[in-house]
Write a protein that binds this DNA or RNA. Sequence first.
DNA 1: CAGTATCCAAAAGGATACTG
DNA 2: CAGTATCCTTTTGGATACTG
Lengths: 114, 114
Amino acid sequence: MSSADTCATRDVYAAMCPCRDLLDLLANKWSALAIGALEDGPRRFGQLRARLEGVSPKVLSQTLRRLEEQGLLTRTPYPEVPPRVEYELTDLGRGAAVPLADLRLWVEANALPG
Amino acid sequence: MSSADTCATRDVYAAMCPCRDLLDLLANKWSALAIGALEDGPRRFGQLRARLEGVSPKVLSQTLRRLEEQGLLTRTPYPEVPPRVEYELTDLGRGAAVPLADLRLWVEANALPG
DNA sequence: CAGTATCCAAAAGGATACTG
DNA sequence: CAGTATCCTTTTGGATACTG
Protein backbone atom coordinates (compact mmCIF):
# COMPACT_ATOMS: atom_id res chain seq x y z
CA MET A 1 0.00 0.00 0.00
CA SER A 2 2.94 2.35 0.05
CA SER A 3 3.61 4.95 -2.56
CA ALA A 4 6.07 5.36 -5.37
CA ASP A 5 8.65 8.11 -5.48
CA THR A 6 7.55 9.84 -8.64
CA CYS A 7 4.07 10.82 -9.71
CA ALA A 8 3.35 13.67 -12.07
CA THR A 9 -0.38 14.10 -11.56
CA ARG A 10 -1.48 13.97 -7.95
CA ASP A 11 -4.43 11.65 -7.60
CA VAL A 12 -5.53 10.13 -4.32
CA TYR A 13 -7.30 7.44 -6.31
CA ALA A 14 -4.02 6.25 -7.80
CA ALA A 15 -2.49 3.50 -5.70
CA MET A 16 1.06 4.58 -6.41
CA CYS A 17 0.63 8.30 -5.77
CA PRO A 18 2.44 9.63 -2.70
CA CYS A 19 -0.63 11.54 -1.69
CA ARG A 20 -2.31 8.25 -0.84
CA ASP A 21 -0.06 8.03 2.19
CA LEU A 22 -0.90 11.56 3.24
CA LEU A 23 -4.60 10.83 2.92
CA ASP A 24 -4.13 7.70 4.98
CA LEU A 25 -2.39 9.73 7.67
CA LEU A 26 -5.03 12.46 7.85
CA ALA A 27 -8.08 10.28 7.28
CA ASN A 28 -7.71 8.86 10.74
CA LYS A 29 -9.71 9.57 13.87
CA TRP A 30 -6.81 10.40 16.17
CA SER A 31 -4.94 12.46 13.60
CA ALA A 32 -8.02 14.51 12.82
CA LEU A 33 -8.68 15.12 16.50
CA ALA A 34 -5.06 15.93 17.33
CA ILE A 35 -4.74 18.47 14.54
CA GLY A 36 -7.98 20.09 15.59
CA ALA A 37 -6.80 20.30 19.18
CA LEU A 38 -3.82 22.33 18.02
CA GLU A 39 -5.77 24.85 15.98
CA ASP A 40 -5.78 27.46 18.72
CA GLY A 41 -2.07 27.36 19.39
CA PRO A 42 0.56 25.13 20.98
CA ARG A 43 -0.46 22.45 23.44
CA ARG A 44 1.39 20.13 25.77
CA PHE A 45 1.25 16.36 25.68
CA GLY A 46 -0.90 16.18 28.79
CA GLN A 47 -3.32 18.75 27.44
CA LEU A 48 -3.74 16.82 24.22
CA ARG A 49 -4.17 13.59 26.14
CA ALA A 50 -6.93 15.16 28.21
CA ARG A 51 -8.68 16.65 25.21
CA LEU A 52 -8.60 13.51 23.08
CA GLU A 53 -10.73 11.57 25.52
CA GLY A 54 -9.90 7.91 25.65
CA VAL A 55 -6.57 8.03 23.85
CA SER A 56 -3.77 6.05 25.44
CA PRO A 57 -0.35 7.63 25.85
CA LYS A 58 1.13 5.12 23.41
CA VAL A 59 -1.33 5.86 20.65
CA LEU A 60 -1.15 9.61 21.16
CA SER A 61 2.62 9.49 21.04
CA GLN A 62 2.57 7.46 17.81
CA THR A 63 0.05 9.79 16.23
CA LEU A 64 2.05 12.91 17.09
CA ARG A 65 5.29 11.39 15.84
CA ARG A 66 3.77 10.48 12.50
CA LEU A 67 2.35 13.97 12.10
CA GLU A 68 5.69 15.47 12.99
CA GLU A 69 7.50 13.23 10.48
CA GLN A 70 5.20 14.45 7.73
CA GLY A 71 5.80 18.05 8.65
CA LEU A 72 2.35 18.84 9.97
CA LEU A 73 3.47 19.81 13.45
CA THR A 74 6.57 20.56 15.47
CA ARG A 75 7.62 19.12 18.80
CA THR A 76 9.54 21.41 21.13
CA PRO A 77 10.94 20.09 24.43
CA TYR A 78 11.92 22.67 27.06
CA PRO A 79 14.86 21.81 29.33
CA GLU A 80 12.97 22.29 32.56
CA VAL A 81 12.05 20.26 35.59
CA PRO A 82 9.46 18.92 35.37
CA PRO A 83 9.82 18.51 31.60
CA ARG A 84 7.55 20.46 29.29
CA VAL A 85 7.00 19.64 25.63
CA GLU A 86 4.91 21.67 23.27
CA TYR A 87 3.31 20.61 20.02
CA GLU A 88 2.40 23.20 17.44
CA LEU A 89 0.99 23.10 13.93
CA THR A 90 3.24 24.10 11.06
CA ASP A 91 1.92 26.12 8.13
CA LEU A 92 1.27 22.81 6.42
CA GLY A 93 -0.59 21.56 9.46
CA ARG A 94 -2.70 24.70 9.64
CA GLY A 95 -3.66 24.12 6.04
CA ALA A 96 -4.73 20.56 6.75
CA ALA A 97 -6.65 21.73 9.79
CA VAL A 98 -9.16 23.60 7.63
CA PRO A 99 -10.83 20.68 5.83
CA LEU A 100 -10.50 18.55 8.94
CA ALA A 101 -12.36 21.14 10.99
CA ASP A 102 -15.13 21.13 8.40
CA LEU A 103 -15.32 17.37 8.63
CA ARG A 104 -15.52 17.42 12.44
CA LEU A 105 -18.21 20.09 12.36
CA TRP A 106 -20.22 18.19 9.81
CA VAL A 107 -19.98 15.05 11.91
CA GLU A 108 -21.12 16.85 15.05
CA ALA A 109 -24.03 18.39 13.19
CA ASN A 110 -25.17 15.20 11.50
CA ALA A 111 -24.53 12.34 13.87
CA LEU A 112 -27.65 10.64 15.07
CA PRO A 113 -28.05 8.99 18.46
CA GLY A 114 -27.62 5.27 18.89
CA MET B 1 -14.41 2.46 21.74
CA SER B 2 -18.12 2.48 20.99
CA SER B 3 -20.49 5.25 21.86
CA ALA B 4 -23.24 5.77 24.38
CA ASP B 5 -26.85 6.15 23.41
CA THR B 6 -27.54 9.60 24.80
CA CYS B 7 -25.41 12.72 24.45
CA ALA B 8 -26.84 16.20 24.61
CA THR B 9 -23.96 18.23 23.22
CA ARG B 10 -22.30 16.69 20.18
CA ASP B 11 -18.57 16.70 20.66
CA VAL B 12 -16.21 14.53 18.66
CA TYR B 13 -13.67 14.96 21.44
CA ALA B 14 -15.96 13.25 23.93
CA ALA B 15 -15.30 9.53 24.09
CA MET B 16 -18.94 8.64 24.72
CA CYS B 17 -20.48 10.81 22.04
CA PRO B 18 -22.10 8.90 19.17
CA CYS B 19 -20.45 11.22 16.69
CA ARG B 20 -17.12 9.61 17.56
CA ASP B 21 -18.24 6.54 15.66
CA LEU B 22 -19.31 8.58 12.67
CA LEU B 23 -15.95 10.34 12.63
CA ASP B 24 -14.23 6.98 12.84
CA LEU B 25 -16.25 5.76 9.87
CA LEU B 26 -15.56 8.78 7.67
CA ALA B 27 -12.00 9.43 8.78
CA ASN B 28 -10.83 6.42 6.85
CA LYS B 29 -9.01 6.21 3.56
CA TRP B 30 -11.38 3.82 1.81
CA SER B 31 -14.52 5.52 3.06
CA ALA B 32 -13.29 8.92 1.95
CA LEU B 33 -12.39 7.58 -1.49
CA ALA B 34 -15.62 5.62 -1.91
CA ILE B 35 -17.80 8.59 -1.04
CA GLY B 36 -15.85 10.78 -3.41
CA ALA B 37 -16.24 8.23 -6.19
CA LEU B 38 -20.00 8.50 -5.84
CA GLU B 39 -20.18 12.29 -5.97
CA ASP B 40 -21.09 12.36 -9.65
CA GLY B 41 -23.92 9.89 -9.42
CA PRO B 42 -24.55 6.17 -8.94
CA ARG B 43 -21.80 3.70 -9.63
CA ARG B 44 -21.58 -0.07 -9.84
CA PHE B 45 -19.41 -2.28 -7.68
CA GLY B 46 -16.97 -2.94 -10.48
CA GLN B 47 -16.67 0.72 -11.31
CA LEU B 48 -15.87 1.56 -7.71
CA ARG B 49 -13.40 -1.26 -7.53
CA ALA B 50 -11.61 0.06 -10.61
CA ARG B 51 -11.59 3.64 -9.35
CA LEU B 52 -10.32 2.84 -5.86
CA GLU B 53 -7.07 1.44 -7.16
CA GLY B 54 -5.71 -1.35 -5.06
CA VAL B 55 -8.82 -2.08 -3.02
CA SER B 56 -9.71 -5.74 -2.66
CA PRO B 57 -13.29 -6.87 -3.22
CA LYS B 58 -13.59 -7.87 0.42
CA VAL B 59 -12.51 -4.52 1.78
CA LEU B 60 -14.61 -2.57 -0.70
CA SER B 61 -17.64 -4.65 0.20
CA GLN B 62 -17.09 -4.06 3.91
CA THR B 63 -16.62 -0.35 3.39
CA LEU B 64 -19.79 -0.01 1.34
CA ARG B 65 -21.84 -2.01 3.82
CA ARG B 66 -20.72 0.15 6.72
CA LEU B 67 -21.56 3.30 4.81
CA GLU B 68 -24.94 1.87 3.90
CA GLU B 69 -25.67 0.93 7.52
CA GLN B 70 -25.00 4.48 8.61
CA GLY B 71 -27.29 5.86 5.95
CA LEU B 72 -24.65 7.51 3.78
CA LEU B 73 -25.44 5.53 0.66
CA THR B 74 -27.98 3.16 -0.80
CA ARG B 75 -27.43 -0.18 -2.46
CA THR B 76 -29.79 -1.12 -5.27
CA PRO B 77 -29.61 -4.56 -6.91
CA TYR B 78 -31.32 -4.97 -10.27
CA PRO B 79 -32.82 -8.38 -11.07
CA GLU B 80 -30.94 -8.86 -14.29
CA VAL B 81 -28.52 -11.33 -15.77
CA PRO B 82 -25.71 -10.62 -15.33
CA PRO B 83 -26.47 -8.95 -12.02
CA ARG B 84 -26.12 -5.22 -11.68
CA VAL B 85 -25.91 -3.36 -8.38
CA GLU B 86 -25.76 0.36 -8.01
CA TYR B 87 -24.51 2.41 -5.11
CA GLU B 88 -25.65 5.97 -4.66
CA LEU B 89 -25.12 8.65 -2.06
CA THR B 90 -28.06 9.65 0.12
CA ASP B 91 -28.64 13.28 1.08
CA LEU B 92 -26.64 12.56 4.19
CA GLY B 93 -23.85 11.09 2.09
CA ARG B 94 -23.83 14.07 -0.22
CA GLY B 95 -23.41 16.27 2.82
CA ALA B 96 -20.47 14.26 4.06
CA ALA B 97 -18.96 14.33 0.58
CA VAL B 98 -18.36 18.08 0.78
CA PRO B 99 -15.74 18.21 3.55
CA LEU B 100 -14.23 14.95 2.32
CA ALA B 101 -13.76 16.42 -1.15
CA ASP B 102 -12.01 19.41 0.40
CA LEU B 103 -9.73 17.08 2.29
CA ARG B 104 -8.87 15.07 -0.83
CA LEU B 105 -8.18 18.23 -2.79
CA TRP B 106 -5.97 19.62 -0.06
CA VAL B 107 -4.05 16.35 0.07
CA GLU B 108 -3.51 16.32 -3.69
CA ALA B 109 -2.35 19.92 -3.62
CA ASN B 110 0.00 19.54 -0.67
CA ALA B 111 1.51 16.07 -0.84
CA LEU B 112 5.21 16.07 -1.45
CA PRO B 113 7.08 13.36 -3.33
CA GLY B 114 8.80 10.54 -1.51
C1' DC C 1 -21.04 -9.24 -12.47
C1' DA C 2 -21.02 -8.85 -7.72
C1' DG C 3 -19.85 -10.31 -4.45
C1' DT C 4 -18.58 -14.12 -0.32
C1' DA C 5 -15.24 -17.46 1.91
C1' DT C 6 -10.91 -18.37 3.58
C1' DC C 7 -6.50 -17.59 5.24
C1' DC C 8 -3.06 -14.76 6.75
C1' DA C 9 -0.01 -10.61 7.79
C1' DA C 10 0.30 -6.24 9.52
C1' DA C 11 -1.20 -2.36 11.83
C1' DA C 12 -4.03 -0.08 15.11
C1' DG C 13 -5.68 0.20 19.45
C1' DG C 14 -5.97 -0.47 24.59
C1' DA C 15 -4.33 -1.34 29.59
C1' DT C 16 -1.01 -0.88 32.61
C1' DA C 17 3.43 -0.34 34.60
C1' DC C 18 7.52 1.91 34.56
C1' DT C 19 11.45 5.65 33.76
C1' DG C 20 14.37 10.07 32.87
C1' DC D 1 5.48 15.63 33.15
C1' DA D 2 6.14 13.21 29.12
C1' DG D 3 6.61 9.81 27.50
C1' DT D 4 8.42 4.37 26.63
C1' DA D 5 7.97 -0.67 27.31
C1' DT D 6 5.28 -4.55 27.36
C1' DC D 7 1.57 -7.48 26.43
C1' DC D 8 -2.45 -8.47 24.34
C1' DT D 9 -6.82 -8.03 21.48
C1' DT D 10 -9.11 -6.22 17.63
C1' DT D 11 -9.34 -4.29 13.24
C1' DT D 12 -7.74 -3.57 8.79
C1' DG D 13 -5.97 -4.95 4.81
C1' DG D 14 -4.44 -8.06 1.02
C1' DA D 15 -4.41 -12.39 -2.05
C1' DT D 16 -6.89 -15.68 -3.98
C1' DA D 17 -10.45 -18.87 -5.00
C1' DC D 18 -15.03 -19.72 -5.41
C1' DT D 19 -20.43 -19.03 -6.11
C1' DG D 20 -25.34 -17.33 -7.38
